[in-house]
Simulated scan of single mutants.
Amino acid sequence: MSKKTVYSPKVLKSPNPHSQATLAGNHFYTATVALNLEGKVVGVGDIEAQTTQALTNLTYLLEAAGGTIDDVARVMIYLSDMRYFEGMNKAYKNFFFGDSLPSRATVTGTFGIPELLVEFDVIAYIDNPKVD
């Protein structure tokens, strides 16, 4: 099984020592937050806007790997406070619905950037990943 780093020009390349995403064979791994290409937090104080930005970043990374949102198998959701659960879930339903819902769990945590309210840790299985 080969391991490949995945990058999308539509997602901020982190200055920290990690890739945007990793493909290991057909398995795709990433974590996304609500940062735009300039490194600014999108939707400060707005959980729906942050969820939308983070999951949009996810779709860009999946696309770069040859996948789609329907390939997501597992989502671990980190919220800065559980009071954001309802708003996160409202925006989440715009990306995940129908018969291809991934399994998921939601916990609380703190983030290195205080304005962040949510982070998504995602595992997907892509049948025909891009291997260029």
Rank of each mutant, 00 (worst) to 15 (best):
G45A: 00
N26H: 15
T52W: 10
T106G: 03
Y92V: 01
A91I: 13
V72N: 05
Y29V: 07
T108Q: 12
T68M: 02
L116Q: 03
T56H: 05
D132E: 14
E115Q: 11
G66P: 04
K3C: 01
T32R: 10
K3Y: 06
E115A: 08
A21M: 09
T108N: 07
M76E: 15
P9V: 01
G112V: 04
I47F: 05
Y125L: 09
F85A: 15
Y92D: 07
A105V: 12
T108H: 02
V75F: 07
T68V: 02
D46T: 02
L55R: 00
T108I: 09
F96Y: 09
N36Y: 04
G98Y: 05
Y78D: 12
H27E: 15
R83V: 14
F120L: 15
T59P: 00
F95L: 06
D121E: 14
E63N: 08
K10D: 11
L12S: 06
N57I: 03
Y29W: 07
L61T: 05
N26C: 14
I47S: 11
G39I: 13
T59D: 06
H27S: 15
S19G: 13
A34M: 02
V118Q: 00
Y7F: 10
N89E: 12
F96E: 03
A21N: 06
V107A: 11
T30Q: 00
T56N: 06
